[in-house]
Design a protein around this nucleic acid. Sequence first.
DNA 1: TTTGAAATATGATGAAGGTCATTTTTTCAA
DNA 2: TTGAAAAAATGACCTTCATCATATTTCAAA
Lengths: 229, 229
Amino acid sequence: MLEKSHKHITCLTCASRNNSLLGSLCTDEIDHVNAHKSCNYFKKHQSLFLEGSFPRGVFCINQGMVKIFQRGDEGKEQIIHIAKSGEMVGFRAMFSEEPYKVAAETLEESNICFIGKDDFLNMMDSNPVLRNGIIKELSKELSDRADFITNMAQKSVRERLAFTMILLMDVYDPEPINLSREDLANFVGTATETLIRLLKDFKEEGIIEVHTRKITVLNKEKLFSLAGK
Amino acid sequence: MLEKSHKHITCLTCASRNNSLLGSLCTDEIDHVNAHKSCNYFKKHQSLFLEGSFPRGVFCINQGMVKIFQRGDEGKEQIIHIAKSGEMVGFRAMFSEEPYKVAAETLEESNICFIGKDDFLNMMDSNPVLRNGIIKELSKELSDRADFITNMAQKSVRERLAFTMILLMDVYDPEPINLSREDLANFVGTATETLIRLLKDFKEEGIIEVHTRKITVLNKEKLFSLAGK
DNA sequence: TTTGAAATATGATGAAGGTCATTTTTTCAA
DNA sequence: TTGAAAAAATGACCTTCATCATATTTCAAA
């Protein structure tokens, strides 16, 4: 159980910061962020931002899990990304100066800090390491999304599920994957019923082990060969 | 017919530059680019770079059309983007310092200039307008790709074709769309046969007009309503 | 601990679209 | 201009997966 008060989390000792985009900041800069950011406790299924709203800053996940998704025409969600501790969300649309085309919502209770747009942009102007880190990150994500598109277009649901599970294993490591069947289906891009049937297959084939929601991968090798990578 | 010699194209008078990312450069900077770039004539179906190779700079399309694509497991191409005059290609992987995950190939004969990696990165360091333009561009593309993924996951081939045609109308404007059936299918993410059948339907419904390869949209409204946007 | 609601699971069915085989048309080089 | 190769088109068939209906399990609040 996380601390539910709005206690300030100090960036300087934030365990998630080192492997994050803000890992490059010097002590002065960290102090500045620390003084200007706000910290919030989010319940499970709480929204960080909605499609159509305008970005006012960036969210920095200290502890927790956030899904980034789009709602299609019939309201069905397509999950684009799942962000975990140390990741920053919400800055992409901030740069493009357009309203969000995706929404963000916690998957579990989380501690998430918020850095205002101006503060963040100023930091980027004055800190080339941060700036280049962001550019690199954006580029990497572009290439991940190209893979995502190609998978969607050319692979069967079964193959996509294998691919998605490999991805989720890393996200949840060392814990078992813990997502609702619906979210999982919305990540793979299929109907919930189809996903459930495939999970059953995987279970029967000894690839995974399931305890209610929690999915443990038993045979990573097989998953890789199924995903075709 | 384009000029086939490797004649130097001067950036200063390049008609494609104004609405490109390099539109922000001052005269000095343009002179510098102009002095350090190389210009090349590309035949139809000529490769700019391959999946797996390392980026050595950026390509700037003076005149022509380039497809950006990935090859799936069975060799089937998935087209991710079609770039036209004024666009720059090949810089995404340059920032992420990873090998290309996509390949680029001309769709028609083209004049394309090349700016080396170091020259380009130096310009980015010293020119905030260029830099921000690039960041903005990367962010926009990320959001386009999120749409692309959601479309792939949730829409029928018919709906995706409508969506793709709207996109291609802008790319080819004011000319008719001029892509092989196979490329079109590989953009929509379907089998060539399925695509051909759907084109026939669209033709019969009066949405498009076809002269061999060339497709003219007659009823843009209908396309929009089909695409569900 | 009970109870109702939400999540998960299973079955039956049909449509969308992929694959393979074959024909027709277009393109391009000799 | 013609002939061969590539591209486009059509047909037949069959697999994958979405949808709808319903049953069962899990969870959380009273």
